[in-house]
Nucleic acid binder design. Structure first.
Lengths: 217, 217
DNA sequence: GTTTGTGAAGGATTTCACAGCA
DNA sequence: TGCTGTGAAATCCTTCACAAAC
């Protein structure tokens, strides 16, 4: 088992607002930044200035998970980063399967940002027989029929979907059937999934489309 | 001037919640999907089923912008899509400048998803002199010193940042100084910008990092 | 009969403001 | 003195529920 529960933080995920969980990685990132700049202690005020949010929100967010600061001083940068990483499960490796090895899939496979953060792509799949068997970096492209057994064998907890929009819902269905509960979706669709499955979309066009509203108005 | 204000919708962007604006592109996308499936009329119930949200929320969201439906029937798919596109400014072209022509920048330049949605990358920049002058697709890589005049000349309204994290804040500062108020940021940082500038991050790692919380807890 | 549009209610999130601790 | 942690207040967002429209 790659991912061991850390007994030091037993958090009821139900009791923490989802928005708060989504901000946690941001805190980790900024803390790492300050740590590598040699800063050892930081206040919620300073964190807030860098993240463009109020100090009160940062303190309240952190209060869902514990008491990490020292009154009159602030937070120990290294310690807080470590604690938050542990809470998020970022202190262990997470295996991911990549589905769709076209142009986008190969770009994602080659993206160097996953590995250092503990995310490892351990399998690659494509529906196209002509791609199956080919090597993409260290991975051999597999047929989708092998999804179920590979998810089990390689302890895949995350699915990364880089297939064309027309096939994305079906591929996501297959991932869900294979037991994957966390999906990173690059396809420009809003997939329908059971309530216990989490989908995060990565979609530059969607991001641009909401900005034009403000450019125009 | 590429982007003409559409006089049919005069919306006070202050009065519309930001979350609502961010859902609008999703509605457009689903409506296009239904339109190309030949469906002409759709209820908020059906839309909600596909987007996994309540019909009431969809109706309330739309009510910020007008009255698009017919009681007892629902919404005309084509008409609603057109109206929403107009409200978002998606009925005109938007020019973007891409800064950072390394691996990621070239992948973004080659991404075929922007063009069909009306986003056009009209300039490419890099700080590295060895890249300046090279051609990437139809673009000639320019020096960053030319940013200001090029933004003006080519009516660039959007900056797309694909430089390494260490340079991203400085590049974003330059974009802001050049008058760009909408930025799509691929760099893994949380940049500080003036209040009238909008930044949307595209960050697969951040998305993954909040999902692991739920995998673990 | 069906479904919209919308005030009002309810729930969630953010901010305030201050007691308590270093 | 300076800053955290946190109840209470304020704000923001979602859902309810129903009159009006087709």
């Amino acid at each position: 088992m790659v991912n061991s529960d850390n007994p030091t933080d037993g958090i009821d995920s139900e009791s923490v607002p989802e928005v708060v969980v989504q901000r946690l990685p941001l805190y980790v990132r900024v803390l790492s930044h300050f740590a590598s700049a040699g800063i050892e202690v930081i206040s919620s005020e300073q964190l807030g200035a860098h993240l463009q949010m109020t100090p009160a929100q940062i303190r309240k967010d952190l209060s869902y998970f514990g008491r990490f600061g020292k009154q009159g001083r602030g937070y120990d940068v290294g310690n807080l980063a470590t604690r938050l990483r542990s809470i998020l499960g970022l202190d262990s490796q997470w295996n991911a399967g990549l589905i769709g090895m076209g142009r986008l899939g190969r770009a994602v496979a080659a993206y160097p940002g996953f590995q250092p953060e503990g995310f490892r792509i351990v399998a690659a799949f494509d529906a196209d027989d002509r791609l199956v068997g080919h090597e993409v970096g260290p991975l051999r492209v597999q047929a989708l029929a092998e999804l179920n057994e590979t998810v089990e064998e390689r302890d895949i907890k995350i699915g990364i979907v880089t297939v064309p929009a027309a096939h994305a819902q079906e591929v996501i269905n297959q991932l869900v059937r294979a037991g994957v509960r966390s999906i990173l979706n690059y396809a420009p669709i809003a997939p329908v999934v059971p309530p216990d499955v989490r989908v995060q979309g990565v979609d530059p066009v969607l991001a641009l489309q909401s900005m034009t509203f403000y450019l125009k108005n």
